[in-house]
């Protein structure tokens, strides 16, 4: 004989499971431990879309063969099964593409292979993303030491001294990684400061989303809130432009530009 509270919880779980719109997410949730499942069902039930996550969703799709779903919450969290992973993000950060880029480091956790794959995509925007996300990752010390050492001559461009306050002083351990050259991002800083979506000549979207993220990294306070939406629009534009080029190549054998 079940207690009525238990029956009520079971009914609530069944209802929430039936409301999950896609089968891939339902399969992930069904594999979770019952105690964890209710937490994630509640997050899925109350979620709001991360408006600036289009870029990091594309990155996550490149990193993982199984689906990774972003779910609004109050703090970063992750759970994964053989069917895929759920990553909770702080809802208040959902409009900032640089903070949302931190999701790939939540996914990487302490796994070195995953971490290097994530660094390969985020490049010089990696530590600004972790800083913006406020993600206290298990390998942050090694990462920060490697990054700050490599880019020390670009300290002002990358706001190294401001990030030091949060990351702390460098440790003796440094992650072994070949950091890329900084992309040119100064024109995008000027465009964001002026109040327009970053763009290249002729209205084309910037080729490097890392450059757009680094431009956004230059802004703080109220200006950051305004610039985040403009930077998101530029990254979304690049993704669409790439898809358009692919479609034109497939269908017409030609290019859109």
């Amino acid at each position: 004989m079940h207690r009525w509270q238990e029956l009520s919880w079971n009914l609530w779980v069944e209802q929430r499971l039936s409301e999950i719109p896609t089968s891939s997410i339902r399969r992930i949730v069904e594999l979770l431990e019952p105690s964890i499942r209710t937490v994630w069902l509640n997050r899925l039930y109350q979620t709001i879309p991360a408006t600036a996550a289009v870029g990091v969703k594309h990155w996550l799709a490149q990193l993982s063969p199984t689906p990774i779903i972003l779910v609004g919450g109050l703090q970063w969290d992750m759970v994964q099964t053989a069917e895929g992973a759920l990553i909770a993000f702080p809802k208040a950060l959902g409009g900032d593409p640089l903070a949302m880029a931190g999701a790939i480091f939540v996914w990487a956790g302490h796994d070195l292979v995953r971490l290097k794959a994530a660094l390969g995509l985020a490049g010089a925007a990696a530590l600004p993303a972790i800083w913006s996300a406020g993600w206290v990752g298990p390998r942050n010390d090694e990462l920060w030491t490697s990054y700050a050492t490599h880019y020390r001559t670009h300290g002002q461009n990358l706001k190294i001294s401001e990030m030091t306050v949060w990351f702390g002083e460098m440790s003796s351990e440094a992650l072994d990684f070949s950091w890329p050259l900084l992309p040119a991002f100064e024109p995008y800083v000027a465009q964001l400061a002026y109040g327009v979506v970053p763009h290249d000549p002729g209205g084309r979207s910037p080729l490097s989303d890392v450059a757009v993220l680094l431009a956004l990294h230059q802004f703080d306070g109220q200006e950051r809130l305004r610039a985040a939406g403009l930077a998101h629009k530029a990254i979304e534009g690049r993704l669409l432009a790439n898809l358009w080029d692919q479609a034109a190549g497939h269908e017409e054998g030609g290019k859109t530009w």
Binding site: R204, G237, L240
Partner: peptide, 8 residues
């Protein structure tokens, strides 16, 4: 400014 311009 008109961006993103997906096609010329």
């Amino acid at each position: 400014i008109v961006t993103p311009l997906l096609s010329r």
